[in-house]
Amino acid sequence: MSTDTPAPTRATPDRYVAVQRSDEFAGLRKALRGFVFPMTAAFFLWYALYVILSAYARGFMGTKLIGNINVALVFGLLQFVSTFVIAWLYSRYADRNLDPPADRLRAELEGTGSVAGGAAPRQTGPDEAEQQEKQDKEVGR
């Protein structure tokens, strides 16, 4: 089976350590944690509220809203909705704040670019290419 993209060059373990110690990698890790930790705490508190209300506020949770639909059912369904919203928010956050520096670090590690020179071109679909062009124009590249 043939591929259109060349095989990446092998990075030595020393290069991995150098990238791990770089300021850009530290910033990438901080950006990831800056989203993941607060969002995890918020979701945990939201879920805990649902469980606590189900256990100790049965009257409130059993309040019928429309027909046989009660507050507990709505809260339960909102757990699913909030999970999808968090996944969508993370995807947007990663596209804007995590992927560009990660791509630059990967390019540097593979020897196909440099951190200072920006990210190496990557294979993109039509929608991604248009979005990348729009971002490049906003940044002034």
Rank of each mutant, 00 (worst) to 15 (best):
N70S: 09
F75H: 04
V36C: 12
E108H: 07
T112G: 00
D103E: 00
G34Q: 07
A42M: 12
L73C: 05
S82E: 11
A87Q: 06
N97Y: 13
L78D: 07
A102M: 14
Y56S: 12
D95M: 08
R92F: 04
W88P: 03
R33S: 14
N97M: 12
F84T: 08
A55D: 06
F80P: 11
Y90V: 02
R106D: 07
D103C: 01
N97R: 15
V74Q: 06
I52L: 03
V85T: 02
A48V: 15
Y50L: 14
N97G: 05
G113V: 03
G59Y: 02
F75N: 03
R104H: 08
G59P: 02
F80T: 08
L105D: 06
T40P: 05
W46M: 09
L32E: 15
Q79A: 11
I52P: 01
R106H: 00
V71N: 05
G62D: 05
F37P: 08
S82T: 04
R92G: 11
L28A: 01
G67V: 09
G67F: 07
T40W: 11
L49G: 06
A42Y: 07
F43P: 01
L73W: 00
D95K: 12
R96C: 09
D99V: 11
N68Q: 14
D103A: 01
F80A: 14
Y50Q: 04
G113P: 07
Y50E: 08
